[in-house]
Amino acid sequence: MDILLPILIIAAIGLLAGVLLAVAAHVFAVPTDEKVDAVRAVLPGANCGACGYSGCDGYAKALVHEGASTGLCAPGGETVAAEIAGVMGVKADKVERSVALVRCGGNHQHTQSKMIYSGAPTCRAANQLFAGPQQCAYGCLGFGDCAAACPFDAIRVCDGLAVVIPALCKGCKTCVAACPKGLIAMVPVREAAAVRCQNKDKGGQTRKICSAGCIGCMRCVKACEFGAVMVQDFCAQVDPAKCTGCGKCVAECPQDCISLLFAPKSVR
């Protein structure tokens, strides 16, 4: 009979806890929106935050409750936008796909190291020591923090320079935050000119350390008929919204640091 009491007590505790939980689950039930769950199910689940909301859950909520645009999911692109629109019963918004671009052209053929660096092999660590081992204080460090951060394996480091493979890039912007130099920017996927340099030194200084750096000579600005190019801090910038992809600035650039993105190979 000694065994009966413990069995009863444990069974009673278990039963009590079970009943209590069942009652609590019923009383404190939080109504979940079925539409949010349905929308969440079609999102890719990368939780990259490219849409501007806190992960896929946040975007799903914003879509249902705040009427957010269906075209914000960069990794999902057109297909996910169409699926979301299907669930929501609205027309799909146009997705302008954008990909990351490393705004530096200084690989080992164009610029040299100023010291032998043997510290931790990350861009973030190297950047803290005299702005990194390469001569240009603005250029790519080449340790691949962006490549390590990329969830889609779309960045490779070639010859000391990080390069984004546009076909693999989903436009999630994870690499933009990973670069300690702030070199990576998002560009729309269409024929448009882009400057692969962020050097803000004067032209003569830039020319000494890198043969692919922008020297701020203004020839691209004069060549552009649409006012899409401007030079600020001795470095040219292209406004993709105004650029028509005519390629006149590309032909003028003496440093070859401006190029037409996504143009057929013969034009580039």
Partner: peptide, 14 residues
């Protein structure tokens, strides 16, 4: 174990 597990579940619901 029984009590703690149930308790944590309850707290989560609340």
């Amino acid at each position: 174990i029984l009590v703690i597990a149930a308790l944590v579940q309850l707290v989560e619901i609340v």
